[in-house]
C-alpha cells in the first residue's frame, strides 16, 4: 500500500515543480504594525518562512541559528519571516520574545492560519525556502527542519552539526541545486483553527 502512496506524492511534487504553488497574497502585520505579504514577490525572489512559537522549547533552542539564517538570507538579497501560529499571541508578547532571543527579522502572527494552511505547516520550528515565480506563484526549494539539533522530540544533540536551512539558502543564492530538499521537522505541533 505504501508504494502507490509514494508514487502519488511523487507525481504531486513533480506537478508542483512544473506548475509551482499559488498562494492568496496573505497580508499580515508584524508587532510594529508593518504589513507584510510573504508569499508575494517578484520572479526570482528568495523568501524564507519559519514557523515558530514563543514557548516551544525546540523552536526557542534554535533561535540563534534561525537568526543566523535570517541574516544570511537578507545578505543574499532574500526576505525572511518568522511566523507565530498561536492566535492568542499579543504584539507585546512577540516583541518581548524577539528581544529576549535577539531576533531581528520581521515577526508576524498568523492568527487566522492563512500561511499555515497555504504552506501546510504542522510543526514549530518548520522552515520553508521559496523561490518566487511572480503573480503569487512560487516553488518550494527546501522544506523541513532548521538544523539537526533535535534528532527527534526528546532527543537533543549537544550541538548543531548540520545547518539544513542555512545550507539550502546558500545553495539557492548561488544558483546551486539543494542536495536534500525535504527534512522531517521535529518540534511542537501547530493546533489549527
Amino acid at each position: 500500500m505504501r508504494t502507490p502512496v509514494i508514487t502519488l506524492m511523487c507525481v504531486w511534487l513533480a506537478a508542483l515543480a512544473l506548475a509551482g504553488c499559488t498562494a492568496p497574497p496573505a497580508s499580515l502585520s508584524d508587532h510594529d504594525g508593518l504589513v507584510h505579504t510573504p508569499l508575494d514577490g517578484d520572479e526570482g525572489d528568495l523568501v524564507v518562512v519559519v514557523f515558530s512559537s514563543t514557548d516551544c522549547p525546540i523552536a526557542n533552542a534554535m533561535a540563534p541559528d534561525i537568526e543566523r539564517a535570517s541574516r544570511e538570507t537578507t545578505e543574499a538579497g532574500g526576505r525572511f519571516y518568522l511566523v507565530h501560529a498561536r492566535p492568542e499571541l499579543t504584539a507585546e508578547r512577540t516583541r518581548t520574545h524577539a528581544r529576549e532571543y535577539e531576533l531581528t527579522m520581521p515577526v508576524i502572527v498568523d492568527r487566522n492560519h492563512d500561511l499555515v494552511r497555504t504552506l501546510d505547516a504542522t510543526i514549530t520550528p518548520e522552515a520553508y525556502l521559496l523561490r518566487m515565480r511572480g503573480n503569487g506563484r512560487y516553488d518550494i526549494l527546501y522544506h523541513g527542519s532548521v538544523n539537526n539539533l533535535y534528532g527527534s522530540v526528546g532527543n537533543r544533540r549537544q550541538n548543531i552539526s548540520e545547518h539544513y536551512l542555512r545550507d539550502a539558502v546558500r545553495s539557492a543564492a548561488a544558483g546551486k541545486e539543494i542536495e536534500v530538499s525535504q527534512r522531517t521537522p521535529f518540534g511542537c505541533y501547530i493546533e489549527r483553527n
Binding site: R86, E88, V153, G154, C188, Y189, E191
Partner: peptide, 16 residues
C-alpha cells in the same frame, strides 16, 4: 493543555 494537545499527547505516548 488544549493549545498543545497533540504535542503533549505525543510526549506522553513516548513516555518522555
Amino acid at each position: 493543555l488544549a493549545g498543545r494537545r497533540r504535542f503533549i499527547a505525543e510526549i506522553l505516548r513516548r513516555k518522555l
